[in-house]
């Protein structure tokens, strides 16, 4: 999706409850090029009202099998509800997308549609 977003001059900033160390490990493991922000105290997550209490997480005893990150046991953690905000040059929110089923995220097509509706391509 990176090149499609770049056509519109949109960069991605992603925030989660991961610590700085966990976010750095995540970037390295998955070869991410987007900006990752750490919010382990859930300050920003609460500020935006996207807190999900006791969400199921698989991180206990995590390991990688055939390139797929897996974990042994589920645990409950507070984390962000997957949410996308499209922000323009003035810092104004132009599009909001939030999931009521954490398994389903903003699809690439939906994000690009919103970007194309909000912005003109650059260059």
């Amino acid at each position: 999706m990176g090149p499609d977003l770049a056509r519109y001059g949109v960069r991605v900033v992603a925030l989660s409850k991961d610590s700085v160390q966990a976010a750095a490990a995540h970037r390295q493991r998955d070869g991410l090029t987007l900006g990752l922000l750490a919010d382990p105290e859930l300050k920003v997550i609460r500020q935006y009202g996207v807190e999900h209490h006791k969400a199921v997480e698989f991180s206990t005893g995590s390991f990688t099998l055939f390139g797929m990150p897996l974990a042994l046991l589920p645990s409950f953690k507070t984390m962000a509800i997957p949410t996308s905000l499209l922000v323009d040059e003035q810092g104004v929110i132009r599009w909001v997308d939030q999931t009521d089923d954490y398994r389903l995220r903003s699809s690439e097509a939906r994000v690009l549609e919103a970007v194309a509706a909000a912005f003109d391509p650059v260059g």
Binding site: V12, L15, K17, A22, H26, E57, S62, P69
Partner: peptide, 21 residues
């Protein structure tokens, strides 16, 4: 450190995600 002032003058997709596993 990142501050939201850095978003001014730029188009951004700000994503909240559940974190890595």
């Amino acid at each position: 450190a990142f501050h939201t002032d850095e978003l001014l003058g730029k188009r951004t997709l700000l994503k909240f995600f559940r974190g890595s596993w």
